[in-house]
Design a protein around this nucleic acid. Sequence first.
DNA 1: GACAAGTACGTGCATATGCACCTATATGAG
DNA 2: CTCATATAGGTGCATATGCACGTACTTGTC
Lengths: 155, 155
Amino acid sequence: MASSTRGQPSDAPLAPSEILCNCLAVRQAARQITQLYDEELAGTGLRSTQYAVLSRLARIAPATVQDLAEALVMDRTTLAHNLKPLEREGLVVMGVAEHDRRVRQLRLTPAGTAKLKEARVAWARAQARFEDAYGADDAAELRRKLARAVEAART
Amino acid sequence: MASSTRGQPSDAPLAPSEILCNCLAVRQAARQITQLYDEELAGTGLRSTQYAVLSRLARIAPATVQDLAEALVMDRTTLAHNLKPLEREGLVVMGVAEHDRRVRQLRLTPAGTAKLKEARVAWARAQARFEDAYGADDAAELRRKLARAVEAART
DNA sequence: GACAAGTACGTGCATATGCACCTATATGAG
DNA sequence: CTCATATAGGTGCATATGCACGTACTTGTC
């Protein structure tokens, strides 16, 4: 009988690559893919997550903390932590909204814009490396399936 | 013209769900899916990663640090850090191999085996929740694609 | 046996992640 | 206006992640 992912798993032997847990499967892939992107980004001084924050912020600035967190599918407090090194390096500034002093207005600084432009070259190398190995069309399909998984996991 | 993931991205508007970066896509999914599994595991006191370590170790014990790390697609030093709370809680013991005193022999304790058995009930709930929303067959396909992505990212 | 080289593992650091809990500000009910 | 409530955000903690570097042990060479 074939392995099922319903009910409790056993300690029975498995093929080395056969992962039954959806969580483990996606975390393993995230670790490995992150390593590839971080390797290409290393020369820029940015990590994968930092590149993602700058890249997203460039699209939606000025953004509140909550809005940027939602756009990144990231916890609000996680983003708050992730912003600290970016602020310290002067890539991002956090202002206070005039109409509501609770609200922050996040923007890229000129240095942040320049760093993002530089990092995009490295990002494109990482993207090309992965897609040369995995297939560009397959990668696009995978991203769609992952986006649907995000929605499924929210239920 | 359709968005391409080759070459550098722009700041042009995107559909909210349209992620071009493979790294961001898989990290977002990992965050969201981990939250679902952690929510179900919360009552056991284990996190997703800790469950994965115990579950994998149960299959291959006695295992060296390096072997368990490879089986989990995890950096050796990351596993070393992750083992600390498990050792502290008495779920895992690390012995020294007789034939080579550099080598560790990792095993579950009886408490670790019992905790794993308990956690499997919670894991099965998380697995069922995700697959009820995403589809069991689609999930199996996604896991296969993620496994292939792991291999692609290693090149 | 001495020692260079290789192997298995640990540690310190910085960032990543999110929960619990906190403060500050705004808003609505009376 | 007052105050309960709601909203935006920050902080401390524990774990997660992996690089750089260090230690302990083994093995091959002489």
